[in-house]
């Protein structure tokens, strides 16, 4: 009978070996970095000589705002949520500063934008944390509200000039020695806070905990409403910061500035290994995910593929990567 017991092999051939599984589930960074390396090599092959300091600078510059927005998704997804209002909040922040810069000055504009973002986050957080509204619905509704209000405000302030302040353009789009974009000045501290916050603080632990099992977290004394309100405020503030960078990068202030970032931000978090069901993932993977998407995007552009192909590939890659993760992390 022992011979019969050995007739396993019902598992699928790809990723079938334990080694592959272990690699993906325990050290997802390795395959992610490998994928990134492959994409960089492919870029070099397609356009020999393109990979250099300048190219790296451009990639980093483009990836930074995406990585910050993907950070919003990472944090919210860890608790089993999602933040679809990041696009509206980011656009709002960029727009507010642009329209106030001339009149009231840049610092005032930034403060007002951050306060407005925090308010939006507070409302979302109260909806999700206190009233238990599904985060998808709550943030979706919130983005409609923010978008409508900004549009309305735009019509009221149509007379004042709306120009991107020079500081923003510098931080958003300039690079140091062509390789280090100034936006890293914003990004590195933020990323450090998120990384350390998730791994080494009580609050980070609780994000994982309420995403994994809200009942257990409650029975252990965690008050999820406190955690969630803080979370959505933090997410909105991060989105506002990303909005500043995007307005500086694109040198435009439009109410739909960051709309096109919403879905890629979710994609970057998913590629980076954060589970949308909560309780699993981290920001390091998300950063790599944002880089992968950025490099891929530029690779496709340099291959001369139209926007359409880029979108199709984006979608396919998300499904494939998410499927690979699911395969290695779920059992039975």
């Amino acid at each position: 009978m022992r011979g019969v017991a050995g007739t396993s092999g019902a598992r699928s051939p790809w990723l079938g070996t334990a080694a592959w599984r272990g690699l993906f589930s325990d050290r997802p960074m390795i395959p992610l970095l490998a994928l990134l390396a492959v994409l960089v090599v492919a870029s070099e092959i397609v356009r020999p000589g393109i990979v250099g300091p300048e190219w790296i600078g451009i990639m980093l510059r483009a990836a930074v705002p995406l990585a910050i927005l993907a950070g919003c998704q990472t944090l919210t997804m860890l608790t089993g949520g999602i933040d679809l209002s990041v696009g509206a909040v980011a656009s709002m922040a960029g727009f507010v500063v642009a329209s106030l810069a001339a009149g009231s000055g840049v610092p005032t504009g930034i403060v007002i934008a951050l306060v407005a973002a925090a308010l939006a986050g507070l409302v979302s957080g109260i909806g999700v944390g206190v009233f238990r509204v599904h985060p998808l619905i709550m943030t979706l509704g919130m983005s409609l509200v923010v978008l409508g209000l900004v549009n309305f405000w735009q019509l009221q302030t149509i007379t004042t000039s709306t120009g991107i302040p020079g500081e923003f353009r510098t931080v958003g789009s300039s690079t140091l020695a062509k390789i280090l974009p100034y936006s890293l000045v914003v990004f590195v501290p933020l990323a450090a806070i998120i990384l350390v916050g998730l791994r080494r603080t009580g609050y980070g632990r609780l994000l994982y905990a309420i995403g994994d099992n809200p009942v257990a977290a409650r029975l252990s004394g965690a008050r999820s409403w406190q955690i969630l309100i803080v979370l959505y405020v933090v997410s909105a503030l991060l989105a506002a910061a990303a909005g500043f960078l995007i307005s500086g990068l694109t040198n435009t202030a439009s109410v739909s500035l960051a709309d096109s970032y919403v879905l890629p931000s979710v994609a970057a978090a998913v590629i980076g290994g954060t589970s949308i069901m909560g309780g699993r993932g981290g920001f390091a993977g998300t950063i790599v995910g944002a880089l992968i998407l950025t490099v891929l995007s530029s690779l496709l552009t340099s291959l001369g593929y139209p926007e359409a192909v880029r979108q199709i590939l984006f979608g396919s890659i998300i499904v494939a990567v998410a499927a690979a993760y699911t395969r290695v992390t779920t059992e039975s």
Partner: peptide, 13 residues
């Protein structure tokens, strides 16, 4: 888990 539940334990572990 219970160590970090209270707000004043949200900081560094």
């Amino acid at each position: 888990l219970p160590f970090t539940a209270r707000i004043r334990r949200w900081g560094l572990i």
